[in-house]
């Protein structure tokens, strides 16, 4: 994407503490998020990703570097100007952060009351927003009467109230169970498509990135170590931190391999298939006419956004010459084959 960037973070540095106790949370980070995309920042806890997200609306002020959103350099604004600009940057949080003393409707109305709007208009708009997030029936309930997923929906409605062009999500699904996570992510995807809201999200869950992010950046010890299209990055992770995040889900494979690896002369490989090549009966084609047999030790088939992909761990049993011929054929058919020793 060659756009100019709706959110531009340029060379941000943020430290906490002073003197010898100084701790660098964000170390010279630059990032560009394009209009209309869903951009994910993933990393383990303590990687600095939440602080980075807070720099976008200056809830955390960077020590140096500039933050530009929609062409306005936020780091130059005075308090009043910043407050006005923040209204166009929605934000949702891991723990929802709704006012416990207000009903769902009044929570959504909170940002509207900062604008010059009549009471009826505010109420109408709040009800519209609640409808958008599927919470019409709960307008008069207090947060304590709602489930986690429902609270996050109200929080999303509140974040969208002032018609922002950016929505920041700070671990927005981390406090939710899997099913609720899925429905909240679907809602965020909808909002991105229907309203054209650019979403910048921070998460430690690879699933979140896999299901809705167009692009993703991996944060590790205050730095962005890898960045790219989601499918590319998840399927071909280069940096060790990325590998760790991506492969955390098939740890058992390594255990498997450690136990059985090659002792009976077999060759263990990891293959990756995505897009069109995922649909072909390539394995049986590849071994046809040879004495090589194969065992699938482990496999996952899933999709990243709309791209189907599979990742298999296979053991081939047969004469070494024939086995390498089989692997060659697979490569010709568009499969990526990697020897397991390379893990």
């Amino acid at each position: 994407m060659g756009g100019i960037g709706l959110i531009i973070l340029d060379n941000l540095v943020k430290t906490y503490g002073a003197g010898k106790e100084t701790f660098t949370v964000i170390n010279h980070v630059s990032l560009k998020v394009e209009k209309g995309e869903i951009f994910g920042i993933i990393g383990r806890s303590g990687a600095g990703k939440s602080t980075l997200l807070r720099c976008v609306n200056l809830l955390a002020r960077p020590d140096s570097g500039t933050v530009t959103v929609g062409g306005v350099e936020l780091t130059r604004l005075n308090t009043r100007e910043l407050q006005a600009r923040r209204r166009k940057i929605g934000m949702i949080f891991q723990h929802f952060n709704l006012l416990s003393t207000l009903t769902a409707r009044d929570n959504v109305a909170f940002p509207l009351r900062l604008e010059k709007m009549s009471r009826q208009e505010i109420r109408r708009r709040a009800d519209e927003l609640l409808e958008l997030v599927g919470m019409s029936g709960h307008a008069d309930k207090y947060p304590a009467q709602l489930s986690g997923g429902q609270k996050q929906r109200v929080a999303i409605a509140r974040a969208l109230a002032a018609q922002p062009d950016v929505l920041l999500c700070d671990e927005a699904t981390s406090a939710l169970d899997q099913e609720t996570t899925r429905s909240v992510l679907a809602l965020l995807g909808d909002i991105n498509r229907k309203l054209g809201v650019t979403i910048l999200l921070v998460t430690h869950e690879i699933e979140v990135v896999r299901s809705i992010c167009d692009r993703v950046a991996v944060m590790h010890r205050g730095e962005i170590v890898e960045m790219g299209r989601t499918a590319d990055l998840l399927l071909k992770p280069r940096h060790p931190a990325t590998r760790e995040l991506v492969q955390a889900e098939d740890v058992d494979v390594r255990a498997w391999i450690g136990g059985n690896g090659g002792e009976d002369g077999g060759t263990i490989v990891r293959v990756l298939l995505s897009g069109e090549s995922a649909g072909r009966p390539a394995l049986s084609e590849a071994v046809r006419g040879t004495s090589v047999r194969f065992v699938i030790l482990h496999g996952t088939v899933s999709r990243i956004r709309d791209v189907p992909y599979g990742r298999l761990t296979i053991r081939f049993d047969g004469p070494p010459g024939e086995t390498s011929a089989v692997i060659g054929r697979l490569r010709d058919m568009g499969w990526e084959v990697e020897s397991v020793d390379g893990i």
């Binding site: 609306n57 809830l59 910043l82 407050q83 006005a84 600009r85 923040r86 209204r87 940057i89 934000m91 949080f93 723990h95 952060n97 709704l98 006012l99 416990s100 003393t101 207000l102 909170f110 940002p111 900062l114 929080a155 509140r158 002032a162 920041l168």
Partner: peptide, 26 residues
């Protein structure tokens, strides 16, 4: 809840309004 104050700040709420409508209310 510190997070509620942070949410109000993120919405661009002036500080006196945060005191009145968030802090004292909550």
């Amino acid at each position: 809840d510190r997070g509620v104050i942070e949410a109000a700040e993120a919405m661009g709420t002036p500080r006196l309004t945060i005191i009145r409508r968030v802090l004292l209310r909550e």
